[in-house]
């Protein structure tokens, strides 16, 4: 069995003071950074759907970004199919795609234009990409005129579906999904979930899924980890983590000592664009 994602003793902290912090480190008076991941170790096997649950701020997105080569680790090891995320990022980028919680697009461009741009970056010509975009979006319930209208005219949920399509379009071997179904209605949620399963089954893809949604984790994941304040507090199959008669939610409370934060759109306020995208310079 090949290891798709190998994470050993991974550490990441953020210094909110930025370059000031860098300067202070140089003069020997470092600021105290915020720890986001503390000695995280996990292994995801090829073809597995691996879930990570945790409250807001527990480090899920940080972990997703490190695997997706968007953040360099402070210490420890992170490898994707044997490639180090820092030194071999080019190799990894060809194999991977990610859906983030905030669907991010060129807002005045249409979904089709956005996805054709993205496809070109993955060396997929529009002649291949376009039919595939139409097919994926059709399955997710988007077709016809909205494909050619600016993304900003779509609802948040629809934009999220376009973001899902962007990731699936490049047929990645590893999919990093950071709350991919947040903001979707129940039917759309199931559509996306079915799609994730299908991609795993038919393309032998590996999926790393960050979520607050225990039902989603229980339904999709072969194995899962509970992340709390940057630490992994439990790992195993969803069935093994919950004691007999216990729901996963109960298990989470037992393992972390607190309830999983309110799962309804807490993050969406932060995820909304800050209104500066209205104009171009």
């Amino acid at each position: 069995m090949t290891t798709a994602v190998e994470i050993v003793d991974l550490e990441k902290a953020f210094d909110p003071s930025g370059l000031v912090g860098e300067l202070r480190r140089v003069v020997g008076r470092p600021t105290t950074p915020v720890a986001a991941l503390r000695r995280v170790t996990l292994h995801v096997a090829r073809g597995e759907i691996y879930g990570v649950v945790g409250s807001n701020g527990s480090g899920k997105s940080t972990l997703a970004r490190i695997v997706a080569t968007l953040l360099t680790p402070d210490a420890g090891r992170a490898r994707v199919f044997g490639h180090d995320v820092e030194r071999k990022s080019a190799e990894i980028r060809r194999m991977l795609n990610r859906v983030s919680v905030d669907a991010s697009f060129f807002k005045k461009l249409s979904p089709l234009e956005n996805l054709v741009f993205s496809a070109r970056l993955y060396d997929l010509p529009p002649s291949t990409a376009e039919p595939r975009v139409r097919e994926i979006l059709q399955r997710l319930g988007i077709s016809g005129a909205p494909l050619n209208r600016p993304v900003e005219q779509m609802s948040r949920g629809m934009q999220q579906k376009v973001a899902v399509a962007r990731a699936f379009l490049t047929a990645p071997v590893l999919l990093v999904l950071d709350e991919p179904t947040t903001g979707l209605d129940p039917a759309s949620k199931r559509d996306v979930q079915a799609f994730i399963q299908e991609v795993r089954d038919s393309h032998d893809a590996t999926v790393l899924l960050m979520s607050h949604d225990m039902d989603e984790i229980a339904r999709l994941c072969d194995r899962m980890a509970v992340l709390d304040d940057g630490r992994i507090v439990a790992q195993g199959t969803p069935a093994s983590l919950a004691a007999p008669g216990e729901t996963l939610e109960d298990a989470f409370i037992r393992l972390t000592g607190h309830a999983l934060g309110d799962t309804t759109n807490r993050r969406t306020e932060r995820a909304e664009p800050a209104g500066v995208g209205e104009t171009r310079p």
């Binding site: 080569t69 980028r93 991977l96 983030s100 991010s104 993205s118 970056l121 993955y122």
Partner: peptide, 9 residues
């Protein structure tokens, strides 16, 4: 992020 994550240099 999605642009920087793509394999294009």
């Amino acid at each position: 992020e999605s642009t920087f994550m793509a394999p294009a240099r």
